[in-house]
Simulated scan of single mutants.
Amino acid sequence: MAKFLIILLVIWLVSRYILPVVLRWAVKALVKKQAKKFGQQFGQSPFTQPPPRPSATRPATAPGEVHVDFVPPQAEPDTKEFKGGEYVDFEEVKK
């Protein structure tokens, strides 16, 4: 009976404290391996920061001002407006 309890205690300790650490390490290694493989397909290293984008030179704006980079051209208004159609009398047909 004592041997059974000791074995049960050892199994509980291993599953409680050692197994999560081992699983965490294994998953971390697997994810790094897959990320490296994925990065090689696209010619980049998966664990490095991407190069910063060059920012366009913008004039300094005061706080609260809005700067608009692009204003789309406005369409010319149509001169032919639809003024409505012809009235059609509706009759319900019953059988």
Rank of each mutant, 00 (worst) to 15 (best):
P51I: 00
G85F: 04
A2R: 04
P20A: 10
P20Y: 14
T57H: 06
Q74E: 09
K33D: 13
A62L: 12
D78Q: 09
L5V: 01
Q74K: 11
G64Q: 03
S15P: 02
L8A: 10
P63I: 07
E91T: 04
S55A: 06
L13H: 11
I11W: 03
R58L: 15
L9V: 08
Y87N: 10
P54S: 05
V68G: 05
P51T: 00
V22Q: 14
Q41G: 02
L19R: 06
S15T: 15
F47V: 01
H67D: 03
G85K: 04
V22M: 15
D89I: 02
K36V: 08
T61R: 09
P52N: 08
I18W: 11
R16A: 13
F4V: 01
V31F: 07
Q34V: 04
V27T: 11
K83R: 07
P72Q: 05
A56Y: 02
A62V: 09
E92L: 10
Y17S: 08
I6C: 10
V88E: 15
G84F: 09
V71H: 05
V68M: 09
S15E: 15
G85T: 06
F90H: 12
Q74F: 03
G39I: 00
S55G: 01
I7S: 12
P52T: 09
F90A: 14
E65Y: 02
W12Q: 07
E65N: 02
L23F: 15
K33V: 12
A56T: 04
T61I: 12
A26E: 11
Y17T: 04
T61A: 07
V93Q: 12
L23E: 14
K80W: 02
Q41S: 04
E65A: 03
V66T: 11
V14L: 05
L30Q: 11
K37E: 06
P20T: 13
S15V: 13
I6M: 13
F4P: 00
A75Y: 00
A62M: 10
K32N: 08
E91I: 05
I6S: 09
V68H: 05
A75I: 00
D78L: 09
Q34K: 05
